[in-house]
Design a protein around this nucleic acid. Structure first.
Lengths: 195, 195, 195, 195
DNA sequence: GATGAATGAGTCTTCATTCAT
DNA sequence: CATGAATGAAGACTCATTCAT
């Protein structure tokens, strides 16, 4: 029922705070091992607060996921903005994604986990389809423009997404590499793979 | 106590059976949502059987993971065997991996999940480092042979792994594409990205 | 998590209630045979209540033990108060202990059991050392005052404790003798043994 | 059913071995925390062996208890043998008991534990009544002979038992005192208390 | 809005005991 | 006689969720 309630400014802040804190805990310890009790006590509030703002732990997680996906997409779109060249668009998209992952490394874990449980996977899949569609469009444009070799656009787009997420996770999150360098490498590899 | 016990042939079979069944259930429903009770009742045995063969649910999961990693690597090594050309080795590795993922699609979920919880992540990471080292070697050889452009071998290797796992997951597992085609695309994209 | 939590008046009462009831059940049926389920259902509350107030069954038991030891000592100290004569102090201590055992016969079983398991024994031992030290002091004073024959004070003190606990257990608890009479006998025997 | 079976010499040896080993484990770790599995594996035999010789864990424990009580009494009787003087008999009994406790310190724990659970207490009590009756007889003789002051013989006898068991437990088992010295002290204290 | 308290179904795990071989 | 395997009831404990205040 927490969905429709009108929230005061303070209420909205609380809600945001809960989501942010829960996201970090979920990312660090995993969704299941992190209990609602842990979340609220970490924030120094009572359990009632949680259920005032969210219907359930699941719903909270879905909300975090949705927010993250939207935010990532917004950043990508904004980066590409009005660049006309398809290959350039792809490059800018890669760089924007990389940048977002740097700033939200912990959320990678959540995406990863979400895809492994049936109740969360659909939402995740939907987001990924959007991301894919975005990429596919650019790839198609690139093929039309002769900048990209002929091939199934979806497959190529998936390959790009694979490179981005893997490099982000392994190099930036695990190894702590310089994001700029990683982005350069990703761009180089992908553009090479497309041509 | 299940660690060092000598098992009879029947016992070894039971153990294998438990691991196989648990792996599928974990893959389908997730590790946490799948209870030990569900596993044993699905196999029509008593609950004690589980703890006769495994110390804990966690240990079973780790064992499944370890087995899977070993099996994948064995297949890769076997595929590459005595191929001398680095690029060819990479191609054969990609195809072998793809093949393995086709035959063990359900295990992808386990790998994915394992990386999200601290108690399983280390083992996973270890396996991935091995896979990476294998790939790095080929990349380095390729650079020396002038077949691969100059660049950080580790980063290139990671990019390859990203393409493989992402395409396997999204195209083979989700979309049910023809593995051959996917492998072709992966090879093309990666070789393009390397040159 | 029940350790440091601030409890409301109602909460403190529940806690006390749980400890009291558990103590009787442990005393009657033994620690191990008495399940947590039995305790909470006997009190007509949900299982969670138990773990809201105590970290574990073990911790509850230790807490009961600690409380009992403190209470017994407080009664002894209070009885002796400002009696100057060592022998008289010993007598008053014996009588106070006897009195306490009458009122808390069930706790004898707990002490007895506690000493047989390593995880509880240390706490018990600590309490007994305190009791011993108390007694030793009086014995030493008595020796100095020439009222008690020369001998190892610790050994004599132990003998007194042995008489008290054994008579309390066997005569008061098992046979239901009149506490006054038992106390008289204990005092007579001990003072005889000391001179 | 293990009760009536005719055992071969080897079988009787096995049985004795099981009882001895179980007794130590029970004494060290407690009856409940020590599992049948632990006992048999400690002896390097299969679980079937246990149930070949004993009907149940409980029965084994009772048997250990019974054996111990019989052995203790036998030693006491043997020590007193044909000593005619009541006070001397008491002294010899104390010394023999002390000696037995030295050699079987671990069994003290079992006696102690047994008295805290209803299913074992009766047997223990029966044994203690025998011990008490023995002591009472000597005390009565002593009173008749004018060597012991007038008083309830049962109470005096209990006091003696209390001193013995407490000193044995606390000084010999816990502190590791010299048994001879402890026996001397016990005798002195008790004879003093009786006169 | 918020808290501490309560619920109870469900989880993992243990273990005395039995059984097929 | 003996073993390894199996059973399943029972135990301690967790935790999402609800409720009284």
């Amino acid at each position: 029922m927490a969905d429709k309630r009108e929230l005061t400014a303070r209420g909205r802040e609380r809600r945001r705070q809960l989501m942010a804190y829960a996201a970090t805990r979920f990312a660090e310890g995993g969704f299941h091992p992190t209990s609602v009790a842990e979340i609220v006590s970490g924030l120094g509030v009572g359990k009632g607060v949680f259920y005032w703002y969210f219907d359930s732990k699941d719903q909270l997680f879905l909300e975090i996921l949705r927010d993250a996906q939207q935010d990532l997409r917004r950043k990508q779109q904004h980066a590409i903005a009005d660049e006309p060249d398809p290959l350039r668009r792809i490059e800018l998209g890669i760089r924007a994604s990389m940048q977002w992952f740097v700033e939200n490394r912990h959320l990678m874990n959540l995406f990863q986990f979400a895809s492994t449980e049936e109740r969360f996977a659909p939402l995740l899949r939907r987001g990924q389809e959007v991301a894919l569609a975005d990429a596919v469009k650019h790839v198609k444009d690139g093929i039309v423009a002769g900048e990209i070799r002929d091939g199934e656009p979806e497959v190529l787009a998936h390959a790009i997404l694979g490179v981005i997420s893997h490099l982000a996770r392994e190099l930036i999150r695990e190894r702590g590499d310089n994001p700029e360098d990683v982005a350069d490498a990703a761009v180089a590899f992908c553009l090479g793979g497309l041509r």
